[in-house]
């Protein structure tokens, strides 16, 4: 019994270490905020001072005025919601497909080897370049942008899952086998949970790409969404409209990313914090 006391030191309370981290965290927040203010100020005052015309670089206030006009006259809310919807939808479908196929290939070494050159080729191929093709095939509707998004989201998730399936600890699988777990049991209780960190990393990358997919789809064809507003604003030499659309696209991507990070923190709570 004596050894219990001596080894309890191994189970540290994380609260003690957390304090200095908090203060350094607030310091970085403050610095980030200061930088933002600085950039906004430069954006507002530098272009007029250098004589750059408004249709090249509109100032912050120009953009805000244009934002209000877009809200009232261009149906900005509808465009934004449409883009957000297709981003989330494309992300969900693409990552689901990527994960499922990643796990299937991860369980079959044969098919993985057979398919790996094609996966690599497709992964390298610029997915956004498929957009015009999809428009030719499906017409000017929501399908092309959804497909581009699914395609662009698919690969990072697939590759991450596949990589993780390959590196699952063999001893852990053997232990599960020795405990008479079925193939499905091994997958559900060992392989799937083992790959979660990689899956989450893949989803994070995919979330940033989803916005790109939708934007390109909307740029190339269609009459809804922030991507459409970019090409529309570009055609009218309305730089403020383009700026605003870009900002809103970034916000959508940022929100999706943030949600994923939150989920990841929940799901991967068992990892020591230093590894995050």
């Amino acid at each position: 019994m004596t050894q219990v006391g001596s080894m309890e030191t191994g189970a540290k309370a994380p609260a003690e270490v957390a304090k200095p981290v908090m203060s350094s965290q607030s310091k970085t927040y403050l610095a980030s905020l200061a930088l933002l203010v600085l950039v906004l100020l430069a954006w507002q005052f530098l272009p007029p001072a250098l004589g750059v015309p408004k249709f090249i670089i509109p100032t912050v206030t120009d953009c805000l005025i244009e934002m209000k006009r877009m809200l009232l006259q261009e149906g900005l809310v509808g465009h934004t919601l449409s883009t957000a919807l297709y981003t989330v939808l494309g992300f969900a479908i693409g990552s689901l497909l990527g994960a499922v196929i990643g796990y299937l290939l991860g369980m079959s070494e044969f098919w993985e080897k057979v398919l790996s050159p094609y996966i690599l080729a497709l992964q390298i191929a610029p997915k956004v370049a498929f957009a015009p093709l999809f428009i030719m095939w499906f017409g000017y509707n929501a399908m092309p942008k959804l497909l581009v998004t699914v395609l662009i989201v698919f690969f990072p998730v697939l590759v991450n899952v596949l990589q993780a399936m390959r590196t699952v600890d063999r001893d852990l699988v053997n232990l599960a086998r020795a405990y008479n777990l079925s193939r499905w049991g091994i997958f559900m209780k060992v392989e799937m949970p083992s790959t979660l960190p990689n899956l989450m990393a893949g989803l994070r990358i995919a979330s940033t790409l989803a916005v790109i997919g939708v934007t390109v789809g909307e740029l190339v064809g269609g009459n809804t969404g922030l991507g459409f507003l970019i090409s529309y604003g570009g055609g009218q030499a309305n730089a403020a409209m383009v700026f605003n659309a870009i900002v809103l696209l970034t916000v959508i991507g940022f929100l999706l990313y943030t949600v994923l990070v939150r989920i990841e923190e929940r799901v991967l709570h068992y990892l020591p914090k230093a590894q995050h």
């Binding site: 050894q3 080894m7 030191t9 191994g10 189970a11 540290k12 068992y270 990892l271 020591p272």
Partner: peptide, 11 residues
């Protein structure tokens, strides 16, 4: 109810 990372190697 501890998780493995919270335990020492011996434990």
């Amino acid at each position: 109810n501890h998780f493995p990372y919270q335990l020492s190697g011996g434990m």
